[in-house]
Amino acid sequence: MLKRVHFPRSALPYLLVAPQILITLVFFIWPASQAVYQSFLIEDAFGLSTEFVWFENFELLVDDEQYLQSFGRTIFFSAAVALLSMSAALVLAGFADRVVRGATAYRTLMIWPYAVAPVLAGALWVFMFNPTLGIFPFLLDMVGIDWNHYLNGTHAMMLVIFAAAWKQIAYNFLFYLAAMQSIPRSLIEAAAIDGAGPVRRFVDHIFPLISPTTFFLLVINAVYAFFDTFGIIHAVTQGGPANSTTILVYKVFNDGFVGLDLGGSAAQSVILMVLVIAMTVVQFRFIERKVEY
């Protein structure tokens, strides 16, 4: 039997958590509930009257070809961002793990991109890929690729994927490096004595042993690509050309503030909210179970 410890009742613990609860209420719960409420309303084009319509906004979304396309695009976008930034980070961390001299400098440099604001990161990539001024279109032109992300939807998509992935590499790198460094040195040495070269050691031992980190990062990166890439998209393509980079978060903004369909926009954000909650739950469930070797 567990003994329950009894403390004298006092208001102090409640006072101590009060600020946290207040912040959560004001900045999270209240806006969220507003969004849910809004998603049940349809407003006329002039904003003069609103009507409570229950789930009509959601029904409209399900039938909306553009919304479904955007959904598919978002899934592709997040998968690409997660894959690209995680594999790049994995390779870099693999090298950093082997570096002995100048390791701190190398790691510090690696972390910088994370400190760059999304919009700035976007601006940076726009500049580098500017079809007339940028360095990359110039180089690509030499191998016969006519780069123009203002006109070509595929190019635009690639560019936002690069920009979003680049920004996330630092974060992934830190986690991967920490995971790799927590693998006992002697284990890798044993593999070396068993005859495994660096690549083989990575594939056979390091990668399986850091799989819990990979899973964790997969969720984090998916959430990032789903919800945190608004700034980058806004700076790089504004969702264009022809909606080819309009992912869900961008569509929420576009439909709500540009298209002024507040009800539809709110319904979309409620769907996003449900998605993020689902992902978080999945993550906690798996993390708690401690991935088994």
Partner: peptide, 20 residues
């Protein structure tokens, strides 16, 4: 020579077994 090419086997203090 690399450890792999020395034709040796080693037993470590913490055994260094592959946990997975």
């Amino acid at each position: 020579l690399e450890p792999a090419d020395r034709d040796i086997a080693m037993v470590f203090q913490n055994y260094a077994l592959y946990p997975h």
